Amino acid sequence: MKLNALLKTLGFLALAATPVVAGPSAPVKNPAPLPPPNDDLGITASLGYDSNYVWRGINYGQHWVRAGLNGALLLVGGAAEDGAGSTSLLWNVDYGSLAGDHDTFSPNFNGAFGAAAIKSTNSFQRLQLGTAISHDFGPASVSFGYSFIHNMGSLANGMGVNQLAGAPGGFGMNDIQQLTLGFSTNLGPINVSSSANYDLFNGGWYFDLNAKSTIAVTDAISIVPHAGLGYGLHYNAGFTQSTRNILGGGTFGGSNSSTTTNGISGWTALNVGIDFPIKLNSRATLTPYVAANLPMGPMANLARSSSFFTGVGGPSNAFRSICYYGVTLSVRF
C-alpha cells in the first residue's frame, strides 16, 4: 500500500511538471512597433519671391527672386536630462537677384549730362554665406557667428553713375564681412530675438530687436504677426564713400567725395508684417506674407533728391516707406 501510494504521488508530480503539448499553441502577441528611423538631415531648402527686397530698412529694388539652404548640426545634446543645454552648428547659403533690374537707387537720367546711353536701372545680385555656434540654455539661446555678403551686378559695381562725365568715380557697394552675436527667448506666446552685428570690412554696427507670435488656425495653417526695429551706429550698409556722399550728403556720407564720415547713427526703420505659413505635408511649407517698411530718423531723411542729381531725380526711393509682399516655399530634408 505504501509503495502504491508513493508511486501515485510521484506520477502526479511528474504530470504537473510536464508542459502541455497537446492542442494549439497560445497565440504570441505582436511586439510593439519600432519608431520610424530619423532620416531628417536637418537641412531646409527654400525658394522665394519678394515684390521688394528690403534689408535692414533699405529698399534695394523690385521683384527679388531668391533661393537658399540652411541647416543645423547638433554638436552637444542631452539638454533634457542634465540641464546643460545643447550646442549646434548653424549654417546658411542664400542667393538673390533683382529680376528685370528694377533697382531703386539709379537716377532717371533721361539723357541728362549726355547720359542717354546710361541705363536708368541696374542689375543687383547678392550671395550670403554664414555660420554660427548656437547654445540653447532652455529659457534662452545665444549664438555667435560670421557671415560674408558678396554684392554683385552693375548696381554694386557703380556702373551708370561711374559712366557720367565728370563723376569722381568709386561708386557702388563693398562686400560685407560681419560678426554677429544673437539672443532669443520666449516671453509667454511671444518670441523675442535680438542681434548685434559688426562689419569687419566697412566698419559700423547694426542692431535689431524682433518679436513674433504664432497663432494656430488649424493643424496646417497659422498666422504669425511680427515686428522688427533697427538701430545703426556709424552704419554704412556696405556702400562706398562716394555712394554715401550722393545718397545722403552730411546725413549718410559727407558734403563731398573727399569727406570721410561715419555713416548713420540712430534708428533706421520699423518693419511690421504678417506671415501665413501653410503646411503642405510633413516636410513642405508655403508661406505668403505682407509687410510694411517704415524708415526712421536719419534714414528717413535720406528720402529726398540728392543735390548731385538736381533736375534728374535722385536715388531716394530706397529710403521711402513701402508696403510689399512675397511668398516662400521651404522643404525640410
Rank of each mutant, 00 (worst) to 15 (best):
A140G: 03
I190S: 10
G160A: 01
N186L: 09
F137V: 08
I133V: 15
L98I: 06
N4T: 15
Y231P: 03
A269E: 09
A79Q: 12
L181Q: 01
F171L: 01
I58P: 05
N191E: 13
R304T: 14
S123K: 06
D50A: 11
A292G: 14
F183P: 03
P37W: 12
T18E: 06
F201I: 15
L129F: 08
A140W: 11
G248H: 04
R320M: 09
Q125I: 08
V93G: 00
G77F: 07
M296T: 09
P19K: 02
D219A: 13
L187E: 12
V142I: 13
V142W: 07
D50N: 09
K212M: 14
G78F: 04
S258T: 13
A216R: 14
S134V: 07
S282C: 06
A165E: 07
S184H: 04
G188H: 08
I278A: 08
P168G: 04
A45R: 00
L129V: 09
G85C: 07
A116C: 08
P27T: 11
D39A: 14
G263E: 07
I118C: 07
I278Y: 11
V21G: 08
L200D: 08
G297M: 04
G166K: 02
S184N: 12
T260I: 13
V192P: 08
A26N: 10
G57V: 10
I176G: 01
Q241E: 11
R66W: 11
P277A: 08
T218N: 04
G188I: 09
G250M: 09
L280N: 02
S282Q: 10
A17M: 12
L200I: 13
T18F: 04
G23V: 02
G77L: 08
F239I: 09
D199R: 06
H234E: 14
S25C: 14
L329N: 00
F201R: 15
T87P: 03
A292K: 07
S25Q: 15
S147E: 14
T185L: 11
V217L: 15
A300V: 05
G204N: 05
T104P: 00
